[in-house]
Simulated assay, not measured.
Amino acid sequence: MIRTATREEFPQLVDIWLRASQRAHPFIAEAFWNARADDMARRRLPACKVQVLEAGRRVIGFCAMRGEHLEALFIDPEVQSFGHGSGLMAHAMAGHRHITLWVYSRNVRAVSFYRRLGFSVVDEREDAETGEQESFMAWSR
């Protein structure tokens, strides 16, 4: 079931974000992610429309949109690769005509995932905080 997140769930969502980020980005130090957990909980998630995916009464992932920009899409690492991310994205795409996002270029799995959904790379930049290349991707209906 996909539903709107409650603020009380934000700590659980930050935990999913943190574990999934560390797993997906071995090229970035864990300390980088740990230092940003509070910002995710206090600033980033509250600024977005956050939808959670529940399975068996357990939140296993979430999608955070700020307007037409995807700020975050994360699935609990314990249940990745079962189509949960695709389901969340299908839900987001059904409610928008256009979606943009930034993704680390070295996160080949994520870049491939978004390409399969019809996103294209339209720009690239260096992330000032990590020195890593990021791809700006866009999708339109």
Rank of each mutant, 00 (worst) to 15 (best):
R3I: 01
T4G: 05
T6G: 09
R7D: 08
R7C: 06
E8F: 01
E8L: 04
E9D: 08
F10P: 08
P11H: 03
V14G: 08
W17E: 07
W17N: 05
R19S: 08
A20K: 00
A20F: 00
Q22T: 06
R23L: 05
A24H: 05
A29H: 07
A29M: 01
E30N: 01
E30M: 00
F32W: 02
W33D: 02
W33Q: 02
N34K: 03
A35F: 04
A37P: 00
D39E: 13
D39H: 10
M40A: 08
A41G: 11
R42K: 09
R43T: 08
L45F: 09
P46N: 09
A47D: 09
C48Q: 14
C48I: 15
V50R: 03
V50Y: 02
Q51T: 14
L53I: 12
L53Q: 08
A55C: 11
A55K: 09
I60A: 02
G61D: 00
G61H: 00
F62Y: 01
C63L: 10
C63H: 03
A64S: 12
G67P: 11
H69C: 13
H69E: 14
L70C: 14
E71M: 13
E71G: 11
A72T: 06
F74I: 01
I75K: 02
P77F: 06
E78R: 14
V79R: 10
S81F: 10
S81T: 12
G85Q: 05
A90M: 09
H91W: 11
M93G: 08
G95M: 12
H96Q: 15
H96R: 15
R97D: 15
L101T: 15
L101V: 15
L101A: 15
V103R: 12
V103D: 04
N107H: 04
N107V: 13
N107Y: 05
V111S: 04
V111R: 11
Y114K: 14
L117Q: 15
F119S: 14
F119Y: 15
S120H: 12
S120A: 13
S120W: 07
V121I: 12
E124W: 06
R125C: 10
D127T: 09
T130H: 03
T130W: 01
E132K: 02
S135R: 13
F136I: 13
W139M: 13
W139D: 10
R141E: 09
